[in-house]
Design a protein around this nucleic acid. Sequence first.
RNA 1: CUCCAUUAUUAA
Length: 312
Amino acid sequence: TFVYNRCISRMAKCFRWGEALDILARMAELGAMPNSYCVNTALNACGKAGRIQEAVELMEDARASGIELDVVSYNCAIPACVAGGKWEQALSMVREMRTKYGIEPNHITYQAVIKVCGRCGRADEAADLLREMKAGGAALKTPVYSAVLNAYRRIDHWQGAVSLVREIHDWKPVGPNVFNYNLAICTCADCGKWEEALELLHYMRDVGGVEPDVVTYNIVVAACGKAGEAQKAIEIFREMSEVGLKPDVISYTTAISACGSGGTADEAVAIFREMAGAGVPPNIITHNAVVAACVAAGEWERALEIFSEVFD
RNA sequence: CUCCAUUAUUAA
């Protein structure tokens, strides 16, 4: 039975749902007893491949042959609902497991159904599920927060992302981590809201008690650059070092390209020159950025100069 | 032996 299950698992990883179901069907005639693990693995194959119908039938068949389904079964099957945008069906599956079969959804279940809602653009439903999850006593996990935040990001709803992360900032026993804040800040950045992005950076540190990392700063610098706020971008780039963070190659590249929107070629080149002293080697993207920044500043001679220096 | 952001969030 283990051996068969491993085979099914391989098929699931390759999105070969048809073969997965085949193997499961032949187990009996080859004298192996399919257990709930095998069924779950096959459900996982259906889930990954978006085969809702097959998943539902498999669950019915399994029950008919006396195999007890569990929370993992639902966790495996629910992701099938992304195909065709069946977020309502995902919700009804959660209802079904609880009311009809007495299986309590866990944080993985919620994560799965929240992801489905997110993929379907239903961010507010995703947030409601998170609240339901907290109320129901399922373990709070940062990946679940990310799933909801990603839902808002998909629909460019920065207000939703910001208010959600503020809502959960003091949740016990697990609040949002840097990763979660970065996602919310990134959503603001995507929407061109650099002030909100910066505000959230301060909020996470001062209210949330979560230290911003290099990625956090990079996102905010990029947001400023994108909004044409080159001076602000440079200021925040500097602040990174002041608070003891070590700018990486992305930080430098982001700051350099921010100079291209409202800054000067001198500023861009100056930051580029600092990299050597900081021991951060530039890459091809950095080189592109510094040339592009000179061009954007209208200094094409400077651009050519840097170009030939860098692309010898 | 099956489900879990870790081919997780940031740059030209």
